[in-house]
Every structure is written in structure tokens, then in C-alpha cells.
Design a protein around this nucleic acid. Structure first.
Lengths: 151, 151
DNA sequence: CTCCTTGCAAAGCCTTTGCACGCTG
DNA sequence: CAGCGTGCAAAGGCTTTGCAAGGAG
């Protein structure tokens, strides 16, 4: 995946030094399917080397977010996830049952943004935000369960 | 406001004991305009009596949420706010500049819910959730500032 | 009288910070 | 060589927990 190279290059061009730690952290987040926690990144990097520290992960993530190369989203339960900006604007649909995260696409983001702007004059940051609920799968399971109980 | 009595009554009917602490905590959250932090509740109750502890506030809030009498929402910045269920479904619009919280009304909640259900089969819990962005006021200020800078 | 609730303080979780050393450029 | 970036460990904020005493029913 060449995407991480773009990020590394960009940081470099901004005058930041490129260390093995930063490279590996960037690769970890860039390779993630879209959202990943700080701890997951730390674990991924630790698999490759011992020369990394949680503090460095947090510092690098802060840097990426600050430079707009990644974004962070606070899930409803206190979890915080990161994603590279390549993934574009999307909304996290977080299932309260299985904990899975689904992405709602750009169209929805835009229509919601327009609605808020028109009705409330509110300029929403919808890059990465999350809605809690029940995914189709868990919803079906739950109904299945109540049918079994009921009958 | 008789609303708090309903909550107190409901808890009582569920077999929970009614203590002065619980009453005052419930009154505090019920009298809030819609969203209030655990700390704010604690402060409000402390104004009325010394006989209260943060732990009790947290325990009571957990109880209320568990019984569906109140709901909690995690704001984008780690803040957690509570509201009684009387306030109905609404969306918190949180301004990242001034930190203020605005409520978007029911109509918006429903249309968003329908959209997610139709397109993703996702049953969203939209009772109390939050969107970060810039309120009209801060947006105007920001533009004002850039105009002054620019000219 | 029973045992649910409380207060207290300590622990817990995740994240941030200060400092000296090491490495990038 | 200059100074940014790192590891380490301790601190930090908010929330939860264990335990004994107290109060509701």
C-alpha cells in the first residue's frame, strides 16, 4: 500500500524527522481498514519491534491529526479511533451489541451537514463521527431471541 | 417541576430505596435544561447539603441510565453529559470553539434515523448523541477574524 | 431487623508530561 | 553538530471499587 508513503513524505516535507517508530506507526494506521485504536496501533508496531513506546504512539497520532493527515473520532463508549484521511468523510455506525464499526458513506454525510447548516446555522465536522445503535445482524439476532422466548 | 417525582416514584416502584441523596441527585438532573455533567450535578447537590459524595452521584446516574430513566451522551472531547428521558430524542450540536451545546430537534433525528435504517439496516440510538462543529456565532466570529487579517 | 446505600479513600484506566539520551538531517 | 524525537516512569483527570457504618422499609 503506497498510501503510507504519501503520509511519510508529507511529514518529511513539513520538516519533521522520519524515525523508524514514526514509519511503523504510520504504516500501521494506513494499513488499517479505516479505524483503529491507539492501543491496536501500539500492539501492531510491537509485533515488529520492541523499540516503541505508547507515548510515542500517542505523540505521533497527535501529530498526524494536527497536520490533517489523520483524524480521530470519539465513539460513544469512550473508545477513540483513528483513521488516515484517505478514507474520506464518513460516519461511524457503532453497534452497541457486537462493537463493530460500519461506515456510512459520503452522501449521508453531506445531506446531514446541509440539514444542520440550513436549520441551525451549525457547521458540523462530520469527517469522522459516530452513531451508536444496532447493526442489521445483531438486530435480527435480537428479534430471533425474543421470538423464541415469546413462543 | 413534577417530573422528578415521576422518576423517584418509578425507582421506588422498582424496589429501590429512596434516600435524600438520590432525591437530590434526581432533582438536579431533572431540573437541568437538558444536559448536565456528573460534576455539575455533584456541585448542585453540594449546595444543598454536605451529605453527598461523588461516588454516590456516579452510582445514581448509572442506575438511572440502566433503568432507562436517563441517558448519557459522550461528547467529542471526552465530556459526558446526562439528561432525563423526558427531554425526548434530540441531537447535541457541540461547538468546538465555545463548547456550548445546542439541541437539534426531533424532526432531524427522525429523518436521520430513517436514512440509516433504509440505507444500512442500522437501527440508530439517536436519543442523545452529539455532533461536533462550529456554532453560527463562532463561525461568524471566525470569518470576521479572517477578514480583518486579510484586509 | 435486614440489607440496600452511603462515604471514604484508594485503585484503575487511558493519556499526557518532564527529563535526559540518542538519532536524524 | 544542533536540536528534534524517544523511552521511561510518574502524574493527571475522571470514574469505579471495597469495606464498614448508617439508614430505609
Amino acid at each position: 500500500m503506497p498510501h503510507c508513503h504519501t503520509i511519510i513524505q508529507t511529514l518529511h516535507n513539513l520538516g519533521f524527522r522520519m524515525t523508524p517508530q514514526r514509519e511503523m506507526i504510520i504504516e500501521a494506521i494506513a494499513h488499517a481498514e479505516g479505524h483503529i485504536t491507539a492501543e491496536e496501533i501500539y500492539d501492531l508496531v510491537k509485533e515488529r519491534t520492541r523499540a516503541v513506546n505508547v507515548a510515542t504512539v500517542y505523540r505521533t497520532l497527535d501529530l498526524l491529526v494536527e497536520k490533517g493527515l489523520a483524524s480521530r473520532a470519539d465513539l460513544w463508549d469512550g473508545r477513540v479511533v483513528y483513521a488516515t484521511s484517505q478514507h474520506g468523510s464518513h460516519i461511524h455506525l457503532v453497534c452497541r451489541q457486537c462493537g463493530d464499526i460500519f461506515n456510512a458513506d459520503h452522501m449521508l454525510v453531506e445531506s446531514l451537514g446541509d440539514l444542520l447548516q440550513t436549520n441551525y446555522g451549525f457547521s458540523a465536522d462530520l469527517q469522522h463521527f459516530s452513531i451508536i445503535g444496532l447493526c442489521a445482524h445483531c438486530r435480527a439476532e435480537q428479534e430471533q431471541g425474543s421470538i423464541n422466548k415469546g413462543g
